[in-house]
């Protein structure tokens, strides 16, 4: 069984992002980039399925700049067998990515697509759902447990108020939530082996898709800074302030 794992290159989770002075976006100059944490979980799940003997081939795919090769190499160091980069310098958005992924799915015909529920840069949480809609595959989103057997995948989903288990007929799309697994580190011997694994580069034109963004960013602003609190001297003072300053009572 072949599994496709789409991954995204994003600003490192530990970087404190700063808004550009002209409010057009976030400053990415000289900022450390890394694989989106939810994508790491997706790669880990695919690798575990392969270790269990369920999966025979893992294909990692990324839609992004040339430098996204680094993250594909990491995915291969973690256990992906080969990878595909759809190279573009566009500021790609979920719909464009989903269309590109659909084209890859048509080519590769994986039985399972495992991807992160969202990327920590845009926080859109749309790509997996859009891909499912475009390909007509069933979807199991926010997975905290994945079991594949007899041509079906059982996905335990983290939903408001509890857990829901759905059973999907393969091929299917699964998006990963935080508690699905704890990703391993890339071992140095595997990082070296990953250098020799195949990495194909394609363009949007090769796939016949249009990656032009449909949504325009008007302005990006940092969240308003919170005012420091004060310590009041007495209950009376508190009541007085709530009444006259905050005007909430």
């Amino acid at each position: 069984m072949k599994v496709l794992v789409p991954i995204k290159r994003v600003v490192d989770y530990n970087v404190k992002v700063r808004v550009k002075a002209d409010n057009t976006g976030v400053d990415l100059a000289n900022v450390k980039m890394a694989m989106n944490p939810f994508c790491e979980i997706a790669v880990e799940e695919a690798v575990r399925l392969k270790e269990k003997g369920v999966v025979t081939e893992i294909v990692a795919v990324s839609i992004g700049p040339k430098t996204a090769q680094e993250q594909l190499r990491t995915a291969m160091a973690l256990g992906a067998d080969r990878s595909i980069l759809v190279e573009t310098d566009e500021d790609v958005q979920p719909l464009g990515i989903a269309k590109a992924l659909k084209a890859i799915v048509d080519e590769e015909k994986p039985e399972l697509v495992i991807l992160g529920k969202q990327a920590i840069d845009g926080d859109n949480n749309q790509t997996g759902q859009m891909l499912a809609a475009l390909t007509g595959m069933p979807q199991g989103t926010f997975a905290s447990e994945v079991n594949v057997a007899d041509g079906k995948v059982k996905v335990t989903r983290e939903i408001d108020g509890g857990l829901q288990t759905v059973e999907l007929t393969l091929p299917a799309v699964v998006t990963t939530d935080l508690r699905l697994n704890e990703p391993r580190y890339a071992s140095l011997p595997n990082i070296m082996k990953a250098k020799k694994k195949p990495l194909d580069t394609k363009t949007a034109a090769d796939l016949g898709v249009d990656l032009t963004p449909r949504v325009t960013t008007v302005s990006v602003e940092a969240p308003a800074e919170r005012q420091a609190g004060i310590i009041v001297g007495s209950v009376d003072e508190l009541v007085e302030k709530l009444k006259n300053e905050a005007k909430v009572i």
């Binding site: 530990n14 580190y185 071992s187 140095l188 990082i191």
Partner: peptide, 15 residues
Amino acid sequence: LDGVMSQSLQQLDQL
């Protein structure tokens, strides 16, 4: 005998 390398600042912190 064996080894790993951090792939992100988050992993750097964890290691």
